[in-house]
């Protein structure tokens, strides 16, 4: 599973990466977490308000930092 955190590197993106790693740990799932800071690529995923979260090339969330529990809810159906 490849997870991408989209954002130019502001506080929100750092927070999103942190809660995503927390959620992965809680689920016990191994995944690669990458950062995407390049603007054309970010917009290419359809993101206009950062941060954004992409799971296996699919945009699942944008515009706010969710709780770890919320990220777990999003990831759960995708890992099974």
């Amino acid at each position: 599973m490849i997870i991408k955190v989209l954002g130019p590197g502001c506080a929100n993106c750092v927070n999103l990466e942190r809660v995503t790693r927390e959620a992965l740990e809680q689920l016990g799932v191994e995944a690669t977490v990458e950062k995407v800071t390049d603007f054309p690529t970010i917009v290419g995923y359809g993101v206009m308000s950062t941060p954004g979260l992409v799971v296996d090339e699919q945009l699942v969330l944008s515009g706010r930092v969710p709780t770890a529990a919320h990220v777990r809810e999003i990831l759960e159906p995708l890992v099974r």
Partner: peptide, 16 residues
């Protein structure tokens, strides 16, 4: 120029 070459891809997610 890259601004005009960028396409808004994927599906937009409305976070609200």
């Amino acid at each position: 120029p890259f601004v005009f070459e960028t396409r808004l891809g994927g599906q937009l997610i409305d976070s609200t």
